[in-house]
């Protein structure tokens, strides 16, 4: 049973640069099976890049990311495709396919990648739509859905490949305030199912509620890695303290 203790995601000295600008400067991080890790930090800190490296929407500059103990640094083509199949990704801007209905958005990859029949893929899509509370929207196009509904369809689409890992890149940042709740509810339910999650978010109340660990990142390095109680009540790092103060009272951003 040693396997259950080995990390599902393991960053090993990961760096990422755009040209000569370093964005991630040597990150080591382990995420265990079923863990929900919230990543926060100021804008431009590299937190989005960090999770985009996991499913290789960004290429690694150096280092390695192990998924289930397998090195993925050298993955290209079909291997990369297999890696991505096992990792769901939810974007800030939803990125639903505009020419497809909600159900078709969800069913596309199961059909084309897993080879499911049209009926099988559709029934999987319906099941997932029900799970995110949108059973009545299967024939709607993205343009006919609200932001919150689009994001829930996007979450269902990420779940359609039955991934072991879910990555969320600021899933509520593009939403109107009254729609944030419905999306967070869905994510909270997922967190309880035992799926491994990395969540980039500014919703600190939510982070405190669902996170097993909170990671604070700035300037491309991890400054704080702590359980939520400790992070929110007794942050050690001054940068993290300032960040939390700014989030809690945005008007008092100077003079610390």
């Amino acid at each position: 049973m040693t396997d259950s203790f080995s990390p599902v995601i393991e960053f090993r000295s990961v760096t990422k640069s755009y040209g000569t600008t370093p964005v991630i400067r040597g990150i080591d991080l382990s995420v265990a099976q079923g863990e929900v890790v919230v990543v926060c930090g100021p804008s431009g800190s590299g937190k989005s890049t960090l999770i985009r490296l996991v499913n290789r929407l960004e290429s690694l500059t150096s280092g390695d990311i192990l998924i289930d103990g397998h090195s993925t640094a050298s993955y290209r083509g079909a291997a990369l495709q297999r890696l991505r199949t096992g990792i769901g990704f939810v974007f800030q801007q939803f990125n639903l396919y505009g020419h497809l209905t909600a159900a078709e958005n969800i069913a596309l990859a199961p059909r084309k990648v897993l080879g499911l029949s049209a009926e099988e893929a559709l029934s999987r899509a319906r099941e997932l739509l029900k799970r995110v509370g949108l059973s009545d929207k299967e024939a709607s196009y993205p343009s006919q859905l609200s932001g919150g509904q689009q994001q829930r369809v996007a979450i269902a689409r990420a779940l359609a490949m039955q991934p072991k890992i879910l990555l969320f890149d600021e899933p509520t940042s593009a939403l109107d305030p009254e729609m944030i709740g419905e999306v967070l509810t869905v994510i909270r339910q997922l967190a309880e199912t035992g799926i491994t999650m990395l969540v980039v978010t500014h919703e600190m109340g939510f982070a405190r509620e669902i996170a097993d660990r909170v990671i604070f990142i700035d300037g491309g390095v991890i400054l704080e890695d702590a359980p939520p109680e400790q992070f929110f009540l007794a942050t050690r790092h001054p940068r993290a303290q300032r960040f939390l103060r700014q989030l809690l009272s945005p008007l008092h951003t100077t003079g610390d």
Binding site: R82, L96, Y97, L108, R157
Partner: peptide, 29 residues
Amino acid sequence: SGGQREAALSTGLSEIQTLVWVLLPQALI
């Protein structure tokens, strides 16, 4: 938007499948 391509690749579609099933249908219209 580049997000369309990234979303498709993230679900495990290949570059060619992404072009055929996600990008071209929208671009052609």
